[in-house]
Each structure stands twice: as structure tokens, then as C-alpha cells.
């Protein structure tokens, strides 16, 4: 297989998405390196979810070039290599947690039992395996959705706000899991996973290896958290983001 381990996990050049009359993504150029946790940050409505859908191959009206794991985004061979978790939990409310995972594991043609138990433990839902998904709390349901994306140990994980509505302990545990996946020490232990994780919680940004800051359909910055602090002379990603937004506003509307 071409470029299986070389080159960036995601490579976008002039990536544009038009939805109706609105240009949601406006000529993005960026790379997502392999085996790292890249955070996708920006205010709601800035195009994060659309970008993630484009990478997962579910977004229509994508122009420009977008390569994922060495092939064009959305190609058939990527469907088992990319795990995608939407912002709203996409699970069957009228099935139990285990029945949900059994089904998605069957779609991926995995031998269910061991894999399902592993991802249930990863998201700390082993105790709720036999509860109906519809009876779980919002945070628990989104973890079922996350567990589904973890099935089959995909090479690239695209997670849209996976920690929204979770308590601090659980958020910390999940971020630990994300880093273990990136280092290749979690899951089934095969190599490092590339993770692209969106969030609008700025303190989560500090936990990422790399950051993509977005604002109104454009990439504002693409760097490590430390480099962002240096560049903007600020101590937190939040302050750096605000500084960059102000600078961009000044550029757009001088005086």
C-alpha cells in the first residue's frame, strides 16, 4: 500500500467546502502529522465539524486536494482505517451498549467479544454494557459513540468534541487514553494512532502535541502549543488564540 507510514496522515491543499451560498472552509492548507494528537480549536461555527466530515469522507461539495493516509479522503479503502465520531452521539438508543458495539464490530468484520470488551474498558463503560443506550446519561452516550470509533484500532481517529459534557476526571482519563493511543501503548498495541480532536475548551489544547486554530473557515495558526505561546508572548493557548483573532480582525478591517 502506498505511503502507509510515510508522509502526513492528512494533507490539505486549497481545501474548500461550500454549503449553499456560504463558503464554510476557504482554501485551507495544512498537514496533520502521524502518531500525534492534533487539536482542532476554534469558536463554534468556524468550520471544525465540516473539516472533520471532509476528512472522514462524509462531506459533500469538497474541492481542492485532501489526502488521508496517502489516498483521497472518502475512498473505499479508508473506511476501515479511519475512525470517526460525530459531535452528537450516533448510536442506536433502542439497543444495549454491547449490542451497539457488536453490530458496528460486525460491520468492520471484527471478532466481536474481545474487541468490544477492550473498547468498553477504554471508555470506562464496562459496567453499563447491558444498559440500553437510550437510558444512559448524555456523557455516557457520547462515550458509547467514542467506543464505536475505537473499534478495529483505526490508524486515524477523527473525534468531534469527544469530551463535551464530561466531568473533569473522565476528561483527564480520556485524554490519557488519547495519548496512549498516539504512543501505540493502548488498544491492541499496534503502532501509534493519529488523532485529530476538536474542542472549544481551550484548556484541552494544552494537552495536544499540535494545534490547528481555526476562525471563520480559515486556519489561524498551525503549530505546537509551546511555539504558539512564544509567538504571541502569552502563557496560555486561550490568550494566544485571542491575540491571533485580534490581529486577524485588525488585518481585515484597518481602522
Amino acid at each position: 500500500m502506498m505511503n502507509k507510514t510515510e508522509g502526513p496522515a492528512v494533507r490539505a491543499r486549497g481545501l474548500t467546502v461550500v454549503r449553499g451560498k456560504r463558503t464554510v472552509l476557504d482554501g485551507l492548507d495544512f498537514d496533520v502529522p502521524r502518531g500525534q494528537v492534533t487539536g482542532l480549536l476554534g469558536p463554534s461555527g468556524c468550520g471544525k465539524s465540516t473539516l472533520m466530515r471532509a476528512i472522514a469522507g462524509t462531506q459533500a461539495q469538497v474541492t481542492g486536494s485532501l489526502d488521508v493516509l496517502g489516498g483521497p479522503a472518502g475512498s473505499a479503502s479508508l473506511r476501515s482505517r479511519v475512525g470517526y465520531c460525530t459531535q452528537a452521539p450516533s448510536v442506536y438508543d433502542d439497543l444495549t451498549v454491547r449490542q451497539n458495539l457488536d453490530y458496528f464490530a460486525a460491520v468492520l468484520r471484527l471478532r466481536a467479544r474481545g474487541t468490544v470488551d477492550r473498547v468498553l474498558a477504554d471508555v470506562d463503560l464496562a459496567d453499563h454494557a447491558d444498559s440500553l443506550a437510550g437510558n444512559l446519561s448524555g456523557g455516557q452516550r457520547s462515550r458509547v459513540s467514542l467506543a464505536t470509533a475505537l473499534l478495529g484500532a483505526p490508524e486515524l481517529l477523527v473525534l468531534d468534541e469527544p469530551t463535551v459534557g464530561l466531568d473533569p476526571v473522565l476528561r483527564r482519563d480520556l485524554w490519557d487514553l488519547f495519548h496512549r493511543l498516539a504512543r501505540g501503548t493502548a488498544g491492541d498495541g499496534t503502532g501509534g494512532t493519529t488523532l485529530l480532536i476538536s474542542s472549544h475548551v481551550m484548556d484541552e489544547a494544552e494537552r495536544c502535541d499540535r494545534l490547528l486554530l481555526m476562525r471563520s473557515g480559515r486556519v489561524l495558526a498551525d503549530d505546537t502549543p509551546a511555539a504558539l505561546h512564544d509567538r504571541t508572548g502569552t502563557g496560555t493557548v486561550e490568550a494566544a488564540f485571542l491575540r491571533l483573532v485580534e490581529a486577524a480582525n485588525d488585518m481585515e478591517a484597518p481602522r
Partner: peptide, 13 residues
């Protein structure tokens, strides 16, 4: 509407 269709069609189904 629940997003399960989108998820399934992003998988090898």
C-alpha cells in the same frame, strides 16, 4: 437523523 446512517456509510458497509 440520529447520525447512525452517516456513521455506517463512513464505515465499510
Amino acid at each position: 437523523t440520529s447520525g447512525t446512517l452517516e456513521r455506517l456509510l463512513s464505515m465499510p458497509l
